[in-house]
Protein backbone atom coordinates (compact mmCIF):
# COMPACT_ATOMS: atom_id res chain seq x y z
CA UNK A 1 0.00 0.00 0.00
CA UNK A 2 2.69 2.48 1.04
CA UNK A 3 4.78 1.53 -1.98
CA UNK A 4 1.81 1.98 -4.26
CA UNK A 5 1.08 5.46 -2.90
CA UNK A 6 4.70 6.51 -3.32
CA UNK A 7 4.77 5.20 -6.89
CA UNK A 8 1.58 7.05 -7.72
CA UNK A 9 2.89 10.26 -6.19
CA UNK A 10 6.05 9.96 -8.25
CA UNK A 11 4.00 9.35 -11.38
CA UNK A 12 2.10 12.54 -10.63
CA UNK A 13 5.22 14.68 -10.93
CA UNK A 14 5.58 14.57 -14.75
CA UNK A 15 1.82 15.08 -15.10
CA UNK A 16 1.92 18.14 -12.85
CA UNK A 17 4.93 19.55 -14.70
CA UNK A 18 3.28 18.99 -18.09
CA UNK A 19 -0.05 20.41 -17.00
CA UNK A 20 1.40 23.49 -15.38
CA UNK A 21 3.57 24.13 -18.44
CA UNK A 22 0.49 24.00 -20.66
CA UNK A 23 -1.36 26.38 -18.36
CA UNK A 24 1.68 28.63 -18.01
CA UNK A 25 2.05 28.78 -21.76
CA UNK A 26 -1.62 29.58 -22.38
CA UNK A 27 -1.76 32.21 -19.67
CA UNK A 28 1.37 34.06 -20.69
CA UNK A 29 0.31 33.92 -24.30
CA UNK A 30 -2.53 36.20 -23.17
CA UNK A 31 -2.17 39.34 -25.24
CA UNK A 32 -1.83 42.75 -23.63
CA UNK A 33 0.88 44.65 -21.80
CA UNK A 34 1.03 43.57 -18.16
CA UNK A 35 2.28 46.99 -17.06
CA UNK A 36 -0.54 48.86 -18.83
CA UNK A 37 -2.68 50.79 -16.41
CA UNK A 38 -0.42 50.12 -13.44
CA UNK A 39 0.60 53.74 -13.10
CA UNK A 40 -2.77 55.44 -13.37
CA UNK A 41 -3.70 57.71 -16.26
CA UNK A 42 -0.22 57.86 -17.77
CA UNK A 43 2.29 55.46 -19.26
CA UNK A 44 4.65 53.88 -16.74
CA UNK A 45 8.17 55.30 -16.46
CA UNK A 46 10.74 53.29 -18.40
CA UNK A 47 12.66 52.47 -15.22
CA UNK A 48 9.54 50.93 -13.64
CA UNK A 49 8.72 48.90 -16.77
CA UNK A 50 12.29 47.58 -16.89
CA UNK A 51 12.18 46.66 -13.20
CA UNK A 52 8.79 44.96 -13.59
CA UNK A 53 9.90 42.99 -16.65
CA UNK A 54 13.07 41.85 -14.90
CA UNK A 55 11.13 40.86 -11.79
CA UNK A 56 8.73 38.69 -13.77
CA UNK A 57 11.37 37.38 -16.20
CA UNK A 58 9.31 38.74 -19.09
CA UNK A 59 12.32 39.03 -21.42
CA UNK A 60 13.39 35.39 -21.13
CA UNK A 61 12.22 32.76 -23.61
CA UNK A 62 9.22 30.71 -22.44
CA UNK A 63 10.94 27.48 -21.24
CA UNK A 64 13.43 29.48 -19.13
CA UNK A 65 10.64 31.58 -17.67
CA UNK A 66 8.80 28.41 -16.82
CA UNK A 67 11.86 26.83 -15.21
CA UNK A 68 12.40 29.97 -13.09
CA UNK A 69 8.73 29.91 -12.11
CA UNK A 70 8.89 26.26 -11.06
CA UNK A 71 12.04 26.90 -9.04
CA UNK A 72 10.27 29.71 -7.20
CA UNK A 73 7.09 27.67 -6.74
CA UNK A 74 9.06 24.78 -5.27
CA UNK A 75 10.01 27.06 -2.37
CA UNK A 76 6.31 27.66 -1.71
CA UNK A 77 6.26 31.13 -3.24
CA UNK A 78 3.61 31.63 -5.91
CA UNK A 79 4.52 35.28 -6.46
CA UNK A 80 2.33 38.34 -5.98
CA UNK A 81 -0.66 39.37 -8.02
CA UNK A 82 -1.31 42.72 -9.72
CA UNK A 83 -2.23 44.38 -6.45
CA UNK A 84 0.92 43.23 -4.69
CA UNK A 85 -0.93 40.68 -2.58
CA UNK A 86 0.74 37.29 -2.19
CA UNK A 87 -1.09 34.72 -4.34
CA UNK A 88 -0.69 32.09 -1.62
CA UNK A 89 -2.57 34.34 0.81
CA UNK A 90 -5.39 34.91 -1.66
CA UNK A 91 -5.61 31.22 -2.39
CA UNK A 92 -5.70 30.30 1.29
CA UNK A 93 -8.68 32.57 1.87
CA UNK A 94 -10.55 31.50 -1.22
CA UNK A 95 -9.75 27.82 -1.04
CA UNK A 96 -11.71 27.53 2.18
CA UNK A 97 -14.80 28.82 0.41
CA UNK A 98 -14.50 26.78 -2.78
CA UNK A 99 -13.42 23.71 -0.83
CA UNK A 100 -16.55 23.98 1.31
CA UNK A 101 -18.68 24.46 -1.79
CA UNK A 102 -17.14 21.54 -3.68
CA UNK A 103 -17.32 19.17 -0.70
CA UNK A 104 -20.97 20.08 -0.13
CA UNK A 105 -21.68 19.54 -3.82
CA UNK A 106 -20.02 16.11 -3.65
CA UNK A 107 -22.03 15.29 -0.51
CA UNK A 108 -25.29 16.35 -2.16
CA UNK A 109 -24.39 14.43 -5.29
CA UNK A 110 -23.48 11.26 -3.45
CA UNK A 111 -26.40 11.26 -1.00
CA UNK A 112 -29.22 12.25 -3.36
CA UNK A 113 -27.75 10.57 -6.44
CA UNK A 114 -27.11 7.20 -4.81
CA UNK A 115 -30.45 7.25 -2.96
CA UNK A 116 -32.33 7.96 -6.18
CA UNK A 117 -30.29 5.34 -8.02
CA UNK A 118 -31.05 2.66 -5.40
CA UNK A 119 -34.76 3.50 -5.34
CA UNK A 120 -35.07 3.22 -9.09
CA UNK A 121 -32.72 0.24 -9.33
CA UNK A 122 -34.65 -1.99 -6.94
CA UNK A 123 -37.95 -0.97 -8.52
CA UNK A 124 -36.91 -1.29 -12.12
CA UNK A 125 -39.70 -0.52 -14.55
CA UNK A 126 -42.02 0.87 -11.87
CA UNK A 127 -43.25 4.44 -11.48
CA UNK A 128 -40.37 5.64 -9.28
CA UNK A 129 -37.85 4.23 -11.76
CA UNK A 130 -39.40 6.11 -14.67
CA UNK A 131 -39.66 9.25 -12.56
CA UNK A 132 -35.94 9.13 -11.76
CA UNK A 133 -34.98 8.39 -15.36
CA UNK A 134 -37.07 11.21 -16.80
CA UNK A 135 -36.13 13.78 -14.19
CA UNK A 136 -32.41 13.03 -14.49
CA UNK A 137 -32.59 13.37 -18.26
CA UNK A 138 -34.31 16.70 -17.72
CA UNK A 139 -31.58 17.94 -15.37
CA UNK A 140 -28.80 16.76 -17.68
CA UNK A 141 -30.20 18.66 -20.63
CA UNK A 142 -30.73 22.03 -18.96
CA UNK A 143 -27.54 24.11 -18.87
CA UNK A 144 -26.26 24.63 -15.35
CA UNK A 145 -26.38 28.42 -15.55
CA UNK A 146 -30.10 28.28 -16.32
CA UNK A 147 -30.68 25.92 -13.39
CA UNK A 148 -28.67 28.30 -11.22
CA UNK A 149 -30.62 31.37 -12.27
CA UNK A 150 -33.96 29.58 -11.85
CA UNK A 151 -33.07 28.28 -8.37
CA UNK A 152 -31.82 31.71 -7.37
CA UNK A 153 -35.04 33.34 -8.53
CA UNK A 154 -37.58 30.83 -7.24
CA UNK A 155 -35.93 29.47 -4.08
CA UNK A 156 -34.15 32.71 -3.21
CA UNK A 157 -36.08 35.74 -4.43
CA UNK A 158 -39.64 34.52 -4.76
CA UNK A 159 -40.07 32.03 -1.93
CA UNK A 160 -37.24 33.27 0.29
CA UNK A 161 -36.15 29.77 1.35
CA UNK A 162 -32.44 30.37 0.84
CA UNK A 163 -30.23 33.47 0.73
CA UNK A 164 -30.00 34.90 -2.80
CA UNK A 165 -26.27 35.61 -2.70
CA UNK A 166 -23.49 34.46 -0.45
CA UNK A 167 -21.42 36.56 1.94
CA UNK A 168 -17.62 36.67 2.05
CA UNK A 169 -17.47 34.20 4.96
CA UNK A 170 -20.26 31.82 3.96
CA UNK A 171 -22.12 29.53 6.33
CA UNK A 172 -23.20 26.02 5.37
CA UNK A 173 -26.79 27.21 5.05
CA UNK A 174 -25.81 29.96 2.62
CA UNK A 175 -23.84 27.52 0.48
CA UNK A 176 -26.54 24.86 0.28
CA UNK A 177 -28.34 26.17 -2.78
CA UNK A 178 -25.12 26.89 -4.76
CA UNK A 179 -23.79 23.44 -3.86
CA UNK A 180 -27.03 21.88 -5.04
CA UNK A 181 -26.83 23.77 -8.34
CA UNK A 182 -23.16 22.89 -8.78
CA UNK A 183 -23.84 19.24 -8.10
CA UNK A 184 -27.13 19.00 -10.01
CA UNK A 185 -25.67 17.59 -13.21
CA UNK A 186 -23.62 15.07 -11.27
CA UNK A 187 -26.62 14.01 -9.17
CA UNK A 188 -28.30 12.95 -12.39
CA UNK A 189 -25.26 11.03 -13.63
CA UNK A 190 -24.65 9.36 -10.26
CA UNK A 191 -28.29 8.29 -10.03
CA UNK A 192 -28.23 6.75 -13.50
CA UNK A 193 -24.87 5.07 -12.96
CA UNK A 194 -25.97 3.61 -9.60
CA UNK A 195 -29.19 2.34 -11.16
CA UNK A 196 -27.49 0.65 -14.12
CA UNK A 197 -24.90 -1.09 -11.97
CA UNK A 198 -27.36 -2.09 -9.28
CA UNK A 199 -29.75 -3.61 -11.82
CA UNK A 200 -26.90 -5.59 -13.31
CA UNK A 201 -25.61 -6.80 -9.94
CA UNK A 202 -29.05 -7.72 -8.65
CA UNK A 203 -29.21 -10.38 -11.34
CA UNK A 204 -25.78 -11.75 -10.38
CA UNK A 205 -25.41 -15.22 -8.97
CA UNK A 206 -23.92 -14.11 -5.67
CA UNK A 207 -27.03 -12.08 -4.81
CA UNK A 208 -29.23 -15.09 -5.55
CA UNK A 209 -26.94 -17.21 -3.37
CA UNK A 210 -27.13 -14.68 -0.57
CA UNK A 211 -30.93 -14.72 -0.64
CA UNK A 212 -31.00 -18.50 -0.99
CA UNK A 213 -28.91 -18.97 2.12
CA UNK A 214 -31.43 -16.94 4.06
CA UNK A 215 -30.23 -13.35 4.13
CA UNK A 216 -32.92 -10.72 4.16
CA UNK A 217 -33.40 -8.89 0.87
CA UNK A 218 -32.35 -5.65 2.54
CA UNK A 219 -29.02 -7.17 3.54
CA UNK A 220 -28.45 -8.86 0.21
CA UNK A 221 -29.07 -5.65 -1.69
CA UNK A 222 -27.50 -3.23 0.76
CA UNK A 223 -24.38 -5.19 1.60
CA UNK A 224 -23.66 -7.38 -1.41
CA UNK A 225 -25.11 -5.79 -4.53
CA UNK A 226 -24.69 -2.18 -3.52
CA UNK A 227 -21.08 -2.47 -2.46
CA UNK A 228 -20.14 -3.98 -5.79
CA UNK A 229 -22.14 -1.36 -7.65
CA UNK A 230 -20.27 1.49 -6.00
CA UNK A 231 -16.94 1.15 -7.83
CA UNK A 232 -17.98 2.81 -11.12
CA UNK A 233 -19.89 5.43 -9.12
CA UNK A 234 -16.85 6.32 -7.02
CA UNK A 235 -14.73 6.48 -10.18
CA UNK A 236 -17.19 8.90 -11.69
CA UNK A 237 -17.29 11.07 -8.58
CA UNK A 238 -13.49 11.28 -8.64
CA UNK A 239 -13.27 12.29 -12.29
CA UNK A 240 -16.21 14.60 -11.90
CA UNK A 241 -14.40 16.52 -9.18
CA UNK A 242 -12.49 18.32 -11.93
CA UNK A 243 -15.77 19.21 -13.56
CA UNK A 244 -17.02 20.60 -10.25
CA UNK A 245 -13.93 22.77 -9.92
CA UNK A 246 -14.48 24.12 -13.45
CA UNK A 247 -18.23 24.46 -12.94
CA UNK A 248 -17.53 26.44 -9.78
CA UNK A 249 -16.56 29.34 -12.07
CA UNK A 250 -20.15 29.57 -13.31
CA UNK A 251 -21.82 28.88 -9.97
CA UNK A 252 -19.63 31.32 -8.08
CA UNK A 253 -20.49 33.97 -10.65
CA UNK A 254 -24.22 33.46 -10.30
CA UNK A 255 -24.26 33.45 -6.49
CA UNK A 256 -21.45 35.95 -5.98
CA UNK A 257 -19.28 33.54 -4.02
CA UNK A 258 -15.77 34.73 -3.21
CA UNK A 259 -14.04 31.50 -4.19
CA UNK A 260 -11.31 30.18 -6.45
CA UNK A 261 -13.49 30.12 -9.57
CA UNK A 262 -14.34 33.77 -9.36
CA UNK A 263 -10.69 34.54 -8.57
CA UNK A 264 -9.48 32.76 -11.70
CA UNK A 265 -12.10 34.42 -13.85
CA UNK A 266 -11.32 37.90 -12.57
CA UNK A 267 -7.60 37.33 -12.85
CA UNK A 268 -7.93 36.26 -16.48
CA UNK A 269 -9.76 39.49 -17.18
CA UNK A 270 -7.16 41.56 -15.35
CA UNK A 271 -4.36 39.87 -17.33
CA UNK A 272 -3.03 38.72 -13.98
CA UNK A 273 -1.02 35.75 -15.20
CA UNK A 274 0.78 35.00 -11.93
CA UNK A 275 -2.51 34.66 -10.06
CA UNK A 276 -4.11 32.49 -12.77
CA UNK A 277 -1.23 30.04 -13.01
CA UNK A 278 -1.00 29.75 -9.22
CA UNK A 279 -4.71 29.16 -8.74
CA UNK A 280 -5.10 26.70 -11.63
CA UNK A 281 -2.01 24.75 -10.61
CA UNK A 282 -3.42 24.41 -7.11
CA UNK A 283 -6.71 23.15 -8.57
CA UNK A 284 -4.99 20.58 -10.76
CA UNK A 285 -2.94 19.23 -7.85
CA UNK A 286 -6.07 18.88 -5.71
CA UNK A 287 -7.78 17.10 -8.60
CA UNK A 288 -4.91 14.62 -9.02
CA UNK A 289 -4.84 13.92 -5.27
CA UNK A 290 -8.60 13.29 -5.24
CA UNK A 291 -8.19 10.74 -8.02
CA UNK A 292 -5.40 9.01 -6.11
CA UNK A 293 -7.76 8.81 -3.14
CA UNK A 294 -10.43 7.25 -5.37
CA UNK A 295 -8.01 4.58 -6.54
CA UNK A 296 -7.21 3.77 -2.92
CA UNK A 297 -10.93 3.52 -2.15
CA UNK A 298 -11.28 0.71 -4.70
CA UNK A 299 -9.31 -1.54 -2.41
CA UNK A 300 -11.67 -0.78 0.47
CA UNK A 301 -14.78 -1.48 -1.59
CA UNK A 302 -13.50 -4.55 -3.34
CA UNK A 303 -10.83 -6.58 -1.52
CA UNK A 304 -9.99 -8.35 -4.78
CA UNK A 305 -8.37 -5.14 -6.00
CA UNK A 306 -5.11 -4.91 -4.14
CA UNK A 307 -2.45 -2.27 -4.43
CA UNK A 308 0.55 -4.28 -3.36
Amino acid sequence: MGKYIIRRLLQMIPVIIGTTFLIFYMVFALPGDPTAGKCGERPCPAAYVAKYRAEHNLDDPMPIRYAKYVAKTATGDLGTNRYGVKVTEDLKKRYVVTGKLALMAVAVEVVIGIAAGILSGIRKGRFIDNLVLVSTLFVISIPVFVIGALCQYFLGVKWGLFPVTVSAKPTLYELFMPAFVLGSLSIAYVARLTRTNLVENLRADYVRTAIAKGLSRKRAVGLHALRNSMIPVITFVGFDFGGLLGGAIVTERIFNIQGIGGYIFRSIYNRDGVAVVGAVTALVIVYLLVNLLVDLLYGVLDPRISHD
Partner: peptide
Protein backbone atom coordinates in the same frame (compact mmCIF):
# COMPACT_ATOMS: atom_id res chain seq x y z
CA UNK B 1 -0.71 7.53 -21.73
CA UNK B 2 1.32 10.10 -19.77
CA UNK B 3 0.56 12.79 -22.37
CA UNK B 4 -3.11 11.85 -22.15
CA UNK B 5 -2.90 12.17 -18.36
CA UNK B 6 -1.52 15.70 -18.71
CA UNK B 7 -4.46 16.87 -20.81
CA UNK B 8 -6.88 14.86 -18.73
CA UNK B 9 -5.83 16.67 -15.56
CA UNK B 10 -7.09 20.04 -16.81
CA UNK B 11 -10.85 20.39 -16.23
CA UNK B 12 -12.64 21.00 -19.56
CA UNK B 13 -14.37 24.24 -18.74
CA UNK B 14 -11.38 25.74 -16.94
CA UNK B 15 -9.01 24.93 -19.80
CA UNK B 16 -11.47 26.18 -22.40
CA UNK B 17 -11.80 29.49 -20.55
CA UNK B 18 -8.02 29.90 -20.48
CA UNK B 19 -7.72 29.00 -24.16
CA UNK B 20 -10.46 31.40 -25.20
CA UNK B 21 -8.96 34.20 -23.13
CA UNK B 22 -5.54 33.57 -24.65
CA UNK B 23 -6.83 33.64 -28.23
CA UNK B 24 -9.02 36.71 -27.83
Amino acid sequence: SRVTDIFFAIPLLLGAILFMAATQ
